[in-house]
């Protein structure tokens, strides 16, 4: 098979998996929320309510399609699509496992191994806010606009701290390629053990970037109705909500890759290379990803939402200085090692 076809197949599998995980994240979110609140959650559609995401999807498809009269039609339609695309694009550089060897063909389990993979992720993630901004702006509704503006300012503020926390990591790894960063972490050399502060900053920023509670101000129901997607209905709303879960999946994958050794786990690294090892590695990565998805939900159902000024204070006055300090410490330690 030509490499292009292999790549196409791989990309569609990743696409499918992202959608599937996002779909069941909505279910998991409701279950986790319910269990943390001593309830049972959805359990009527299918065994354990497992068909609930399908039912939700069908419901969204059959809802009335509504576009506000004064809305900018094209931008209004573009918003959700843009958000979705950028959410999915990030997965291109995530290494899902070591190379898969079938006969003579070697299939790299990564969309593409960019040598600036980390930068690419940053670029795409910051594009993501355009979907929200466009959608909010085009709705011609003040709540939507406020939500969109919040999203934009929040993303800009937290991108800084996130970038700075990553710089410390890059100083250590001396590479921007995701694959190399993962391969440096084999065994117990997980970056989180060397960069705990950087990890913490990155984690907080990841919450802010994905608009998840406690930083879900762009869609804060108590003040802004639905935030940027107030005017959206039917599957366009579904796209926004869905993309949020894809974002969550991808950022869990990024966290696992950057700080928790990606597809590496000590007991698997010592195995002989082969099919089994490859699949176990993929399994390990997904276990880590699912843990972080759970973690996202766990935090959401524990912490109250930040106030807007608190959010900005945290971002600018705490995280950025901390990230700078982290860079300095990392620099000193690296210098001493040399």
């Amino acid at each position: 098979m030509s490499p292009i076809i292999i790549k196409l197949i791989f990309v569609s599998i990743v696409f499918g998996i992202s959608l599937f995980v996002a779909m069941y994240s909505t279910y998991a979110e409701r279950k986790v929320a319910a269990f943390l609140q001593d309830r049972l959650g959805p359990n009527r559609a299918g065994p354990f309510g497992l068909l609930q995401p399908l039912a939700d999807g069908v419901k969204l498809f059959f809802k009335e399609e509504f576009i506000p009269l004064k809305a900018d039609r094209w931008l209004f339609l573009m918003g959700p699509g843009f958000f979705m695309i950028t959410a999915l694009m990030t997965s291109a550089v995530i290494p899902f496992g070591p190379d898969l060897k079938i006969g003579d063909t070697v299939i790299p389990l990564q969309g593409t191994d960019l040598n600036v993979g980390l930068l690419y992720i940053f670029g795409v993630v910051s594009l993501g806010v355009y979907g929200v901004l466009i959608g909010g702006w085009a709705s011609n509704n003040k709540f939507s606009l406020l939500g969109a503006i919040r999203a934009a300012s929040q993303n800009i503020s937290y991108e800084l701290a996130m970038g700075l926390s990553i710089i410390a990591l890059v100083m250590m790894t001396a590479t921007l390629s995701m694959r190399e960063i993962v391969d440096q972490q084999s065994g117990w050399h997980w970056n989180v053990l060397y960069q705990p502060l950087g990890f913490l900053i990155f984690l907080v920023c990841a919450f802010a970037e994905t608009n998840r509670a406690p930083f879900d101000l762009p869609e804060c129901e108590t003040e802004l109705v639905g935030g940027y997607h107030t005017e959206y209905s039917s599957m366009k709303l579904g796209f926004f909500l869905f993309a949020e879960y894809i974002n969550m999946f991808i950022s869990s994958a990024v966290i696992a890759t950057l700080y928790f050794g990606g597809y590496h786990a000590p007991f698997i690294d010592s195995m002989d290379p082969g099919m089994l090892k490859t699949f176990l590695s993929i399994g390990v990565l997904f276990a880590k990803i699912f843990f972080f998805i759970f973690f996202f939900m766990w935090v959401r159902w524990t912490l109250p939402r930040f106030r807007y000024d608190q959010l900005m204070n945290l971002g600018w006055k705490m995280l950025i200085p901390l990230a700078v300090v982290n860079i300095i410490i990392t620099g000193i330690v690296l210098l001493m090692k040399m």
Binding site: V32, L36, D38, R39, L40, W298, T302
Partner: peptide
């Protein structure tokens, strides 16, 4: 988070 996690295993009121 510890408190919420402990509720994960509690008896459900439903």
């Amino acid at each position: 988070m510890g408190i919420t996690l402990s509720h994960l295993f509690k008896k459900k009121a439903t």
